[in-house]
Measured scan of single mutants.
Amino acid sequence: RELEAFAERFKQRRIKLGVTQADVGAALANLKIPGVGSLSQSTICRFESLTLSHNNMIALKPVLQAWLEEAE
Results as ranks from 00 to 15, higher is better:
53 S>E: 11
37 G>R: 11
14 R>G: 00
62 P>T: 07
53 S>T: 07
61 K>S: 05
64 L>D: 01
14 R>K: 01
18 G>E: 03
72 E>W: 05
62 P>V: 04
9 R>E: 14
65 Q>S: 09
21 Q>F: 04
28 L>V: 09
17 L>R: 03
38 S>L: 12
63 V>P: 08
18 G>D: 03
36 V>G: 06
49 S>E: 15
43 T>V: 12
43 T>F: 04
45 C>P: 06
9 R>P: 02
13 R>K: 13
56 N>K: 10
51 T>W: 04
42 S>K: 14
50 L>Q: 15
61 K>T: 11
1 R>N: 08
16 K>R: 13
24 V>R: 01
20 T>H: 07
34 P>W: 02
27 A>N: 09
20 T>Q: 06
14 R>L: 01
67 W>M: 03
21 Q>A: 10
47 F>P: 00
52 L>P: 00
1 R>M: 11
9 R>A: 12
69 E>D: 12
16 K>V: 10
30 N>W: 13
52 L>T: 03
7 A>V: 14
2 E>G: 15
62 P>H: 10
67 W>H: 01
51 T>S: 14
28 L>R: 00
61 K>F: 04
15 I>V: 10
59 A>L: 04
23 D>Y: 04
31 L>Y: 07
29 A>Y: 05
60 L>P: 00
40 S>N: 08
67 W>I: 01
9 R>M: 15
23 D>T: 05
13 R>Q: 11
69 E>A: 14
66 A>E: 14
39 L>P: 14
30 N>G: 11
38 S>P: 14
18 G>P: 02
63 V>Q: 04
66 A>K: 15
13 R>T: 15
2 E>P: 04
43 T>S: 07
35 G>F: 06
68 L>A: 05
15 I>W: 03
7 A>T: 06
2 E>K: 09
66 A>D: 08
38 S>A: 04
36 V>W: 10
12 Q>F: 08
3 L>I: 15
24 V>K: 00
56 N>V: 12
2 E>Y: 02
37 G>W: 02
28 L>M: 10
32 K>R: 12
15 I>T: 14
42 S>F: 07
29 A>C: 14
20 T>M: 05
11 K>F: 03
6 F>C: 01
32 K>H: 10
30 N>D: 08
46 R>W: 05
44 I>V: 15
17 L>N: 03
39 L>C: 14
37 G>Q: 13
71 A>D: 02
9 R>C: 09
40 S>W: 04
19 V>L: 14
47 F>Y: 06
38 S>T: 14
51 T>G: 08
24 V>A: 09
20 T>I: 02
56 N>G: 12
69 E>R: 11
58 I>S: 12
8 E>W: 07
3 L>Y: 07
72 E>Q: 06
15 I>N: 08
63 V>I: 14
65 Q>W: 02
66 A>R: 09
17 L>Y: 03
26 A>I: 09
48 E>S: 00
62 P>E: 06
8 E>D: 12
40 S>Q: 05
68 L>F: 02
21 Q>D: 06
60 L>R: 01
50 L>G: 14
60 L>F: 05
38 S>I: 13
32 K>E: 14
61 K>H: 10
46 R>V: 00
16 K>L: 12
47 F>L: 03
31 L>M: 05
72 E>K: 04
31 L>R: 06
22 A>E: 12
8 E>A: 14
7 A>Y: 01
26 A>F: 10
31 L>Q: 07
6 F>W: 07
65 Q>V: 11
4 E>Y: 09
30 N>L: 06
22 A>C: 06
35 G>K: 05
12 Q>T: 10
29 A>S: 10
8 E>T: 14
68 L>T: 03
22 A>S: 11
27 A>L: 06
69 E>Y: 11
57 M>T: 08
12 Q>P: 00
65 Q>G: 14
31 L>G: 02
62 P>S: 08
36 V>Y: 09
62 P>I: 01
33 I>Y: 10
21 Q>K: 05
